[in-house]
Design a protein around this nucleic acid. Structure first.
Lengths: 129, 129
DNA sequence: CCGTATCCGATTTGATACTG
DNA sequence: CAGTATCAAATCGGATACGG
């Protein structure tokens, strides 16, 4: 490491150039995103739906640890944020399919950057002291 | 977007190729990372420290919304995860400087990918309905 | 099959006051 | 300056039971 600090690419360097006014941080988009998708299940659902659309009970089985309550809440949140589409087929019995919107699919890529980092540093991270 | 679904680059595609066994998801590194850094303040602190090292009260002022309690807790967590270094100068009055470790600095980059996404879609996201 | 309703414990955060 | 202690509030999450 030669330079004092890593040069930060992209918007971070652009948006946070100096001692930070702080008030602007409250509205920081990164924080916003994490506050919305950073809960216990949202990202998992996004990733699973990234493979293919799933019906409600498919999701319930695929994620397994999740309760109906949280699955519904999570899906409603993702729906409200425009990341997930809910499609109802008026059949008997009823069938509801969930899929990613284009916006939701676009989130998969930055997510993978974080996934790469997580995998690469899984050893150093994770173990507290 | 021509294909049925976005082709997911990197580890996401590699680690989650099929209907998902789900048990393996519990140990998903991405989830791990989010569970640790996905709290209310951690990422903000990492980003602020990415600009330059800060002392305790500098951080307190820079982030502004944060309470002393949460600032300390957040710093201790980041320290335990090897993302932040704490350096005490035995002066009068005492001075404690916090800075990113190499690991912490490396996290800045995937974070910026997410930041780019957040900025790019700030309009579509954020507004619920 | 696809949810909703209710209850309750666990975790997280904030406000405030105090200390070496 | 750099924290800790304590209390209360809000939020999150799981279990269970019920309804369209």
């Amino acid at each position: 490491m030669s330079a004092a600090h890593t040069d930060v690419p992209s918007v971070l360097a652009h948006e946070l150039p100096r001692p930070v006014p702080a008030a602007e941080f409250a509205a920081c988009p990164v924080t916003e995103v994490f506050r919305r998708v950073g809960d216990k299940w949202s990202m998992l659902v996004v990733i699973v739906l990234g493979q293919r659309p799933h019906r409600y009970n498919e999701l319930h089985r695929a994620i397994e640890g999740i309760s109906q309550r949280m699955l519904t809440r999570t899906l409603r949140g993702l729906e409200a944020d425009g990341l997930v589409d809910r499609t109802v087929a008026a059949t008997v019995p009823p069938s509801v399919s969930y899929s990613l919107t284009p916006l939701g699919r676009s989130l998969l890529e930055p997510l993978s950057a974080l996934a790469d980092w997580a995998v690469a540093h899984a050893g150093a991270f994770g173990r507290r002291a």
